[in-house]
Amino acid sequence: MNHIERTTDSDKQKLRRQLLTVRGRLPEDVVREAGRALAGRALELPELARAGTVAAYVSVGGEPGTIALLDALCARGVRVLLPALLPDNDLDWGAYTGEGSLTRIRHGGKMTLFEPAGDRLGPDAVTDADVVLLPGLAVDTRGMRLGRGGGSYDRVLARLERAGADPALVVLLYDTEVLERVPAQEHDRAVQAVVTPTGVRRFTGA
């Protein structure tokens, strides 16, 4: 595969630290405004316009905000699924119907997350999604996404592949996080598009 080069986990960790440091310095108003702008751009995607079910996530920390996008999708009548972190770092899923349907969960020494408060639908529920909106720290010109390193979304993408599901894969980032190259390994999968506060970029190799 031509998008795989010799790389190590330490290469990824070094870049993750750099990107997280930059995010950690962002003022709250910048994060909020980025979320509003990103929602507007994402809602223009044809894939989201025709989607019946979208798997998404609630942003945390310095991630571009996603609540505005989630609420807009719900207002369109889209079924929105959100992840719930399992002890082994896999993801279960539940429905989002507004901010009142979220609960704040502290995962031991890991980060605190907002997760769906209702019934759990099982890890395979993501295979029903027409679009999967992915968190990340960066993406490169090939569509290779750099995640946080927990492996949760590697499992999701592997589950989709095993099920023969083929949703559109879209990562949500800041403009400065679209890079020329990120370290990629054999198990990494490309996304079809990235949405940033200023626009959408598609990747033909995904």
Rank of each mutant, 00 (worst) to 15 (best):
P116E: 00
L113A: 13
L160C: 02
T141Y: 15
R76F: 01
T198Y: 05
G149D: 01
D9T: 14
A129Y: 06
V171A: 01
D9K: 15
R23K: 10
D166T: 11
L48Y: 04
A34H: 08
Y174W: 13
T66V: 06
L43A: 09
E177G: 03
G151M: 08
T204R: 01
M1S: 15
L15S: 02
L157V: 01
C74A: 14
L70Y: 05
D128F: 05
R148E: 04
E47Y: 09
V60T: 15
L19Y: 03
T21L: 13
D140A: 05
S59M: 00
D90P: 04
P197F: 00
G143S: 12
T204Y: 00
I4G: 09
D92C: 04
P46Q: 08
P64S: 08
E99F: 07
L134H: 03
D90V: 06
D124C: 09
V195F: 09
L26Y: 04
H187C: 00
G150V: 00
Q192T: 03
M1N: 12
A95E: 15
A184S: 13
L179S: 10
T66D: 08
Y174P: 06
G62H: 09
R155N: 05
A168I: 03
T141V: 14
V191I: 08
A158F: 03
A158R: 14
L157R: 01
T66Q: 02
R189D: 02
Q18A: 14
D128R: 03
L91P: 01
E63K: 06
L48K: 00
I67L: 15
A168C: 13
F203L: 06
A138V: 10
I105H: 14
D11E: 11
L69C: 10
P123S: 09
F114I: 03
G98S: 12
D128K: 03
A84V: 15
G77T: 13
R201S: 07
E44V: 13
A95L: 12
T97E: 13
R36P: 06
E33A: 01
A138N: 09
L157K: 03
V30K: 12
G149R: 06
I105S: 12
R25V: 08
D140Y: 06
G98Y: 12
G164K: 03
L15H: 08
P123E: 11
T141G: 14
V60L: 14
R162D: 14
G108K: 07
R36T: 12
P27S: 00
V132L: 01
V200W: 02
D92Q: 02
E47A: 15
